[in-house]
Design a protein around this nucleic acid. Structure first.
Length: 595
RNA sequence: GGAGCCUUAGCUCAAUUGGUUAGAGCGCCGCCCUGUCACGGCGGAGGUUGCGGGUUCGAGCCCCGUAGGCUCCGCCA
């Protein structure tokens, strides 16, 4: 037996007991005579004391111990001499006086220290197993575990059944780029790794499972971000004979259970709801961060007859004039103004007009075009006060909203409104439903309509006539997202369960009848064999855990993440393979990768 | 595909406007130290300043290119 206790369990009551501990040498304090070792395991620290007068042999060996050596000690739990107790340590009343020391494994000097935040992320990644020994990441892994367990326990309590679906799956034309796996048995053919278990879970509804969930690995071969990895985990949920309300309440219950288990926090349910239209109109985003104000204000009424041509022109063309008021931001620097102008242009604005309110004066080249009445109306509508800074968008609705939405977020960052390093116990967990998404979005690149959510999403019943008459931009979907503090953490929809409607949807998306059969034949067939009405939702589990842990990147809540370029620096994957493996698969690498 | 920031010792960082032999703390090695808890003290080793080119009497610093890392845009049904 290596140990009788972990390194966080010995207390005053254990004094005199014979104990064994095992773990890593966290730090040594070698006084030449007496030697102190802080022994660490995943639970905590215990001080081990070697004294020459007690055991000269052991003390001599203890002199050789270094950082992260793995050792086992057996001996007696003793009271610390009065005055040397350490109140900062749970085990600070006691120490272990060993009669035995086994050095289980020596450690080389470490590539980076474990007691400070390393800056060099690729160094951390190449030695990820060391990085994970650091308390922060070790804590994150355990929070993640608790969140996953709470998910399973809660959904189980609600009658949901966890079903695994295939990883070797089939490529579908819609959506993200697939990871492909070549087939050996059918040379030239490929499996695809699932972007989501979407079709399988719908087929499980046809199978009569009624309530399904899965903590599912998903794969998307797209470029990475701080909150996007090629391989990630979803909490996937689907239920039959349900309305959106029932999905909403299961979701709220589940998230409440997760936050209770992970942080012992009671989140506020039910969540507020906002339609897509309102979200974009008020916050310039379909995943609004409502933790600070600065809402978009419509100024159409004020400038309808304005002499300021830019605003008037936008309105006459059927667009909008909107503004945000950044309170106390009149001190904006030239660099900041330039950056915001860049952002505005990048997202389709022709430029960025802003007004600084300084010393009672409105400072901006555009102010001279405003009438007194317009100024007065602005003042009241935007609640303008000394020190404010106003930013305007005059454009098509979509562009004006998006630009101001982006500016709003960047300005909030500049003003540090988001409290960058938020503590996990931060009280402002702002959950929100965004509903009534458009069913379609226009792809200028492909010159066709695409499904905004996915091709199996139902149109809202009241919008069915619009769908039938092909007024695609106006059709709303029975689709919804969950947003937490401005991060989209989940989304779902009611699905199409009627084969005729599904065919019409495919038609609208420009998928030929032949392609429908080859790509979705199994689903269309299933819809003809007794498919119940159904719908569901899926959550980005990594993102939820990231927010719970107060991390800025999902890499910090994954054990072995990939870097920016989708590489695992520890195993050095992807890597070349033996030519024989390629031969078995009937694959010949192209000489010129640009082919 | 594009933009920005970054790259100096094992790690974290410093190095006036371009100017002598590129420094510090931690770690590492050696010596000393019997109640510390980030123990302490003395000494030592350790650098092609990511790489390649250019400007210059002289480049860690300026310019060009390139590699890598991170962040963002595009992309992510």
């Amino acid at each position: 037996m290596y140990r009788t206790h972990d390194c966080n369990s010995l207390r005053k009551a254990d004094i005199g007991r014979q104990v064994s501990l095992a773990g890593w040498v966290n730090v040594t304090r070698d006084h030449g005579g007496v030697i102190f070792i802080d022994l660490r395991d995943r639970e905590g620290l215990t001080q081990v004391v070697f004294r020459p007068e007690e055991n000269a042999e052991l003390a001599k060996e203890a002199h050789t111990l270094g950082y992260e050596d793995v050792i086992q000690v057996s001996g007696r739990a003793a009271a610390r001499p009065p005055g040397t107790e350490n109140p900062n340590l749970a085990t600070g009343d006691i120490e272990v006086i060993p009669s035995e020391l086994r050095i289980l494994n020596r450690a080389d000097p470490l590539p980076f220290p474990l007691d400070t935040e390393p800056q060099n992320e690729d160094l951390r990644m190449t030695h990820r197993y060391l990085d994970l020994r650091r308390p922060r990441l070790a804590r994150n892994l355990r929070i993640r575990h608790r969140a996953a367990k709470a998910t399973r326990d809660y959904l189980d309590s609600q009658g949901f059944v966890e079903v695994e679906t295939p990883i070797l799956s089939k490529s579908t034309p819609e959506g993200a780029r697939d990871f492909l796996v070549p087939s050996r048995i059918a040379p030239g053919k490929f499996y695809a790794l699932p972007q989501a278990p979407q079709q399988y879970k719908q087929l499980l509804m046809v199978a009569g499972v009624e309530k399904y969930f899965q903590i599912a690995k998903c794969f998307r071969d797209e470029d990475l971000r701080a909150d996007r990895q090629p391989e990630f985990t979803q909490i996937d949920i689907e239920a039959s004979f349900v309305m959106p309300e029932e999905i909403f309440s299961v979701t709220e219950g589940m998230l409440a259970a997760i936050f209770k288990a992970a942080l012992n926090i009671d989140i506020k349910t039910p969540f507020d709801r906002l339609t897509y239209r309102d979200a974009v109109n008020r916050f310039g985003s379909d995943k609004p961060d409502r933790r600070f104000g600065m809402e978009l204000v419509d100024l159409g009424e004020i400038f309808r007859e304005s002499g300021f041509k830019i605003f008037r022109g936008a309105l006459d063309a059927g667009g909008v004039v909107k503004a945000i008021n950044a309170n106390g931001f009149a001190g904006i620097t030239i660099g900041q103004a330039d950056e915001l102008t860049e952002i505005a242009k990048l997202h389709g604005a022709k430029g960025l007009a802003f007004i600084k309110i300084e010393n009672g004066e409105w400072k901006s080249p555009i102010v001279k075009f405003f009438s007194d009445a317009e100024k007065a109306a602005l003042r009241s509508k935007l609640n303008i006060e000394e020190g404010d800074c106003l930013f305007f968008g005059a454009d098509k609705w979509e562009i004006a909203c998006e630009v101001l939405g982006r500016l709003r977020l960047r300005i909030a960052e500049m003003q540090d409104l988001l409290g960058r390093a938020r503590s996990p116990s931060a009280p402002d967990w702002d959950f929100l439903w965004v509903t009534d998404f458009p069913l379609f979005e226009w792809s200028a690149e492909e010159n066709k309509w695409n499904a905004m959510h996915h091709p199996f999403t139902r149109p809202k019943t009241e919008d069915m006539p619009l769908f039938e008459s092909k007024k695609f931009p106006e059709v709303r979907a029975e689709a919804y997202d969950v947003v937490l503090n401005g991060v989209e953490i989940g989304g779902g929809s009611m699905r199409i369960y009627e084969p005729e409607l599904q065919e019409k949807m495919f038609e609208a998306l420009g998928i030929s009848p032949e392609a429908r059969q080859s790509q979705f034949g199994h689903l269309l067939r299933a819809l003809r064999l007794g498919a119940p009405p159904h719908g569901g939702i899926a959550f980005g589990f990594d993102r939820v855990v990231m927010l719970i842990c107060g991390e800025q990147s999902i890499r910090d809540v994954m054990a072995f993440p990939k870097n920016n370029r989708s590489m695992d620096l520890m195993t050095k994957s992807p890597a070349e393979v033996d030519p024989k493996q390629l031969r078995d698969l009937g694959i010949k690498p192209a000489k010129d990768k640009k082919l």
